[in-house]
Write a protein that binds this DNA or RNA. Sequence first.
DNA 1: CTGAAAGCGCTAACAC
DNA 2: GTGTTAGCGCTTTCAG
Lengths: 333, 333
Amino acid sequence: MTTQVDVARLAGVSTATVSRVINGQGAVTDAVRLRVERAVETLEYVPHANARALALQRSGTLGAIIPTLNNAIFAEGINAFERIAQSKGYAMILAVSQNDPPQHSEQVKRMIEQGVDGLLLVGNDHEPAVFERLEKAGMRHVCTWAFDPQAYAPNIGFSNAKAMHSVVDHLVELGHKHIGMLAGRSTRNDRARERIQGVVSRLQYHGLALPDRHIVEVDYSLKQSRKAFQELIKNHVSAVICGNDVIAQGALLEALSLGLCIPKNLSITGFDDLELSAQLSPSITSVQINAAVMAERAAAALIEAIESGSAVQSCELETCLVVRETTGSCTTH
Amino acid sequence: MTTQVDVARLAGVSTATVSRVINGQGAVTDAVRLRVERAVETLEYVPHANARALALQRSGTLGAIIPTLNNAIFAEGINAFERIAQSKGYAMILAVSQNDPPQHSEQVKRMIEQGVDGLLLVGNDHEPAVFERLEKAGMRHVCTWAFDPQAYAPNIGFSNAKAMHSVVDHLVELGHKHIGMLAGRSTRNDRARERIQGVVSRLQYHGLALPDRHIVEVDYSLKQSRKAFQELIKNHVSAVICGNDVIAQGALLEALSLGLCIPKNLSITGFDDLELSAQLSPSITSVQINAAVMAERAAAALIEAIESGSAVQSCELETCLVVRETTGSCTTH
DNA sequence: CTGAAAGCGCTAACAC
DNA sequence: GTGTTAGCGCTTTCAG
């Protein structure tokens, strides 16, 4: 392995000078700079980030812990997060928690070990140990995919409940009174819980109820969703609010294969606004969340905080209901 | 920040002993071990991975560079890769190249800087500089999503061409003679190129031709795919082979909205076998590649090579054509 | 403007 | 068994 001292030797300077040239810090004669640069070229010298991190007390890396990548919307977010990190000179360390709190907590510890300069988390619902560790290590972090002014940690995201309010308002306006929900699994998932809560409270606001048997929780899977849909519609609802687009897609496919006419017989809504939802026929009414923008903001905010030595700024993002063909006026009495 | 010396002081031992306890190396009296463990608890000591990497000359990280995460099949692969890495005690550094060779090459350099112990790449088609750098740094790596016995680097993946042979054979057996292809963009993408080549050569083998105007390249997008499909079918083909499942889904949706009866009027095939392909109606005939298994193997092979000090073993994986409802006998003349 | 030297936190010989 | 010590490769005062 070739190190700074090799470069220094070849260029006939000290390692301090090599360091100055490489980092563009401190004045160096043009002649010297050139000699060093040439030596770097010749030796194909590659600096050692770990050693650098040790000396600098900053690693130049950003961490991200997400529930899974097998969910297009998280993948999209991480893709954007990495892009910004990359462009600002940070490498990204990614961990997948599978929605498992102990594992998540362990991963936070590992991120601290790795010395990431900032950390992206999903949701606000984490073990206290997580925030204690982060606090103790003085590690900047941001919780995404949620926005709660009361949240313990900085939030860059949207209110899942509020987003559902717009869905409920839309359906109520169309005359729907008997509504069902195919929710995402809510255990250890505050986003899913908030979405359910948002639906319940907004229906209440409109004087309507969402009985427990009208709420069915389902995995992130087309197949599971289709099955759950069959169960749910036994309750004769006129509209089904889905916790995410994959569930909505499953519901729609099953409805069509059952011979239902959408939206005449039944309205369906999704959440995330995946590309497919706009392309299916009928196209699915869904809540657009703009995961890429959210993740970009999170990366930028983290980096801004790191480099300016300040705290991470929270930021509420707006969601937007995209009305398409799966929602229509209620036709059942 | 609390370090080993703090722990050592509190436990009344040397840092060497602390190190031994933490790493489970070298014999230590039970009493001492206990004292150290208690001190670690009390101080909430977190070891410093960068310092460890520097001393050990191993970072305990694995790197992965992929074209994008906005493609379910890569996301699935990375998800699996991270899972194995995690379970064997490695952190994952992920970079997204956007299929941009200069950026890719730069990212390889950064991975070397970070000192990852092993690196996953996608495809065999990389700038020579990439392999030179890897070689020079003595960094273990593996190219996935492809298998070529002649490949310069170790391969863990499948032959994209061979996979397409099975598709062609299937269609030819059904009597199709006029075939078209909606291929993925082939610039800087050897997998897409190989798939095209696989179709062309296998048709030739059957005495059939795939004229250039029957090959349309298209982005990874439902919308783009629908548009391209409209163009392609002006050529009156009886079957359309798609370079991936998203393209196939777009083609199918467009075909249906054009009033075509699938597979009576037209056969369509995909590649990747995403969950949706099995759920659409008609369900899509597709090539199953098992990205998760491939990525797991890659992670395991990398780690095995790192820890045993040996070279990475190549491994060819089989693909499997899943025949579903979008392919049927050719009915045109 | 440049070099010498100390030290970031950890591990691995080598003594004891 | 356990402590001492010498680095791992880099940056950064501090002299000159």
